[in-house]
């Protein structure tokens, strides 16, 4: 669905210095610096995939997404989305994709969201029946019924985001770009939005590319992640593989009736030993062995094996780099 080959984007940025003299000088003679926002990125996304696009602020995620959506002109490289070259901005292309930005709104501020939907209906040339069907479906999935006739300005951030999603999906796009869709939402609403995205993807086989700062979004939604840093793609693959590669250990929590006096450090790295509970970081391949050892030899109340938190994994990835990906 999405093919990207050797994509580059550089911006010419005016170098600003502080101070009066410098300000005056910059009026006469501006210095420019070329900033490479995206450097030689290549990837392919198949129909129906949900791919998470991760990276620190300023890594080039949004720039790449905007090039995919046809908003920015690539400096060099090739992009096709559903067979179209995005920057040509063909009508057929625009009708098959949609963009949602968590920080920018397309809803008309002073009037109910329904009015925006009707404007979009005209713009996307949706016929009455399809419009009604799609609207009914979205209203149900996103629980919009009580919101439709309230002025947008009176909606909460979470309610507004749900309406944004509906506005973006009315024309049933085949490709959906989500830029920070859950930013600023409370945990409960985040969860709602995520569940909606998963359901919608399953139902309609929409290809979704998502950027987010919240690991929760990525772990809940994506099987595949792409990590970008300083404009370069440093990882592209399954989320599970990434976790395995970067975090070759699991978190083992064991509760005992009486905590035994054993040399804990022989089993793994000690995270915490407290009353009746031991938390260890154990190498992946030893997890089974260690846990069965405790189960056989001690009176264990409860045992809990977990993957390390995603934040930890990603932070490590950026600190240590990816050597062989």
């Amino acid at each position: 669905m999405i093919h990207v080959k050797h994509l580059h984007k550089s911006f010419r940025v005016h170098v600003r210095q502080t101070g009066w003299l410098e300000a005056i000088r910059s009026l006469l003679n501006r210095e420019y610096r070329l900033v490479e926002a995206v450097k030689d990125i290549s990837f392919t996304i198949e129909k129906g995939e949900i791919v998470g696009f991760l990276g620190p602020n300023g890594a080039g995620k949004t720039t790449t997404m905007k090039m995919l959506a046809g908003l920015l002109h690539p400096t060099s490289g090739e992009i096709t989305v559903g067979g179209f070259v995005p920057f040509e901005q063909k009508t057929e292309f625009k009708k098959m994709m949609s963009l949602v930005m968590g920080q920018k709104s397309q809803l008309i501020w002073d009037i109910p969201p329904m009015e925006t939907f009707l404007v979009n209906k005209a713009i996307y040339e949706i016929d009455d029946r399809t419009f009604q069907q799609t609207l009914d479906e979205l209203v149900e999935l996103l629980e919009l019924a009580p919101l439709l006739d309230k002025p947008t300005r009176s909606l909460s951030l979470g309610q507004r985001m749900r309406c944004e999603l509906a506005a973006a999906l009315l024309h049933r796009p085949k490709v959906l770009f989500l830029d920070e869709p859950t930013i600023g939402l409370d945990v409960h609403t985040q969860e709602k939005v995520r569940r909606f995205i998963v359901d919608y993807n399953r139902e309609h086989e929409t290809t979704i590319l998502l950027t987010s700062h919240y690991m929760g979004d990525v772990t809940a939604l994506c099987d595949r992640v792409m990590i970008i840093n300083h404009g370069t793609l440093i990882y592209d693959g399954e989320l599970d593989v990434l976790t395995e590669k970067l975090a070759p250990y699991k978190r083992l929590e064991i509760r005992f009736a009486n905590i035994p006096a054993v040399p804990w450090e022989n089993y793994g790295e000690i995270v915490e030993i407290e009353d009746g509970k031991a938390t260890l970081r154990v190498a992946r391949e030893k997890v089974a062995e260690v846990s069965s050892h405790f189960l056989q030899h001690f009176h264990v109340h409860d045992i809990n094996i977990q993957d390390p938190p995603m934040e930890e994994v990603i932070t490590r990835a950026f600190q240590e780099g990816f050597n062989d990906s």
Binding site: K66, A69, G70, L71, Q89, T91, E92, K94, K95, M97, S98, L99, M101, K104, S105, Q106, I123, Y124
Partner: peptide, 15 residues
Amino acid sequence: RRGTLDYILTKPVDS
């Protein structure tokens, strides 16, 4: 200035 032109450019009408 605010970047809302983004939405306009993704719409299938003449911008």
